[in-house]
Simulated scan of single mutants.
Amino acid sequence: MNRRTVLKSAYAQFLFLMSGADHDQMDRMRSYITTMVAGWDVEQVKSVVGETLHDIVDPLVFAEAAELISDHKLCGRDVVIVSASGEEIVGPIARALGATHAMATRMVVEDGKYTGEIAFYCYGDAKAEAIRALAAREDYALEHCYAYSDSITDVPMLETVGHPTVVNPDRTLRKEAAARGWQMRSFSKPVSLRDRLPAAPSGAAVATSFAVGVSALAAGALTYTLLRRFAF
């Protein structure tokens, strides 16, 4: 990535962190990211992510979220990470968290390179549809499931479950949650994901949605979706 690309990505991420992202902003971000990565070698990108995820870029998770994740895992609940970010980034983080499943944005690949087109955009209504499809396959009872998010763009996801919760919500989502009577929580203690890994129980249950695009590697903006497995 040249200097101009790095600066543009950093600026886009700054705007996201300061103001959140509505649908128009997300569309612009998506267009920018897909154009930027066209022609990149897929295996090289995966290799870079794998080599730098903890040595250079150290993802953050809120301590309160880590405790919540542990509580859900101890209850035997499945972990599902649902993210608008690319699967190349979400996959390694999902594995680090011991997730059962991960759903993320997938790019079209031809001859080992990204074409700049999107095969599946895990965002908005599509994210909710992906969750319903997974629930059908895995026999999740959605009325007993939990979802956590900080963004108004995740309202379709929150509506699919019986226990929606907003965490550090943006202004629009806060108003929506108040109108619907959804639970609100505040997380304020970011910690290194690497430091939390030894304490995390193995097994089962959260979904963590990491902000947006390639620049989300450096972000602490997280949303969470937890799905519970029930015996029938």
Rank of each mutant, 00 (worst) to 15 (best):
1 M>L: 13
2 N>Q: 00
4 R>W: 05
6 V>E: 10
9 S>I: 04
14 F>E: 09
14 F>Y: 15
17 L>I: 11
18 M>Y: 10
20 G>D: 10
21 A>G: 15
23 H>Y: 11
23 H>S: 14
23 H>M: 12
30 R>Y: 03
31 S>L: 08
35 T>H: 15
35 T>A: 15
38 A>D: 04
38 A>W: 02
39 G>F: 05
39 G>S: 05
48 V>S: 03
52 T>E: 10
54 H>V: 13
55 D>K: 11
57 V>I: 12
61 V>Y: 02
62 F>D: 11
72 H>E: 12
74 L>Q: 11
74 L>S: 07
76 G>V: 01
79 V>F: 09
80 V>P: 02
85 S>P: 03
85 S>D: 02
88 E>D: 14
94 A>Q: 05
97 L>I: 11
100 T>M: 07
103 M>A: 06
108 V>E: 13
113 K>V: 11
119 A>C: 04
120 F>G: 03
121 Y>F: 11
123 Y>H: 13
123 Y>M: 01
124 G>S: 14
130 A>T: 09
132 R>Q: 14
132 R>I: 07
132 R>V: 11
135 A>E: 08
136 A>P: 02
144 H>G: 07
144 H>L: 14
146 Y>G: 08
149 S>L: 05
149 S>P: 06
154 D>E: 06
155 V>Q: 11
156 P>N: 06
156 P>F: 05
158 L>N: 07
165 T>L: 12
167 V>F: 03
172 T>S: 09
172 T>E: 12
177 A>S: 12
177 A>M: 06
177 A>P: 07
180 R>S: 02
188 S>H: 14
188 S>A: 08
189 K>W: 03
189 K>H: 13
192 S>F: 01
193 L>S: 00
198 P>H: 03
200 A>L: 09
202 S>I: 04
210 F>Y: 10
213 G>L: 01
215 S>T: 01
220 G>V: 03
221 A>S: 13
223 T>N: 10
223 T>M: 07
226 L>I: 12
227 L>C: 12
227 L>E: 08
229 R>D: 06
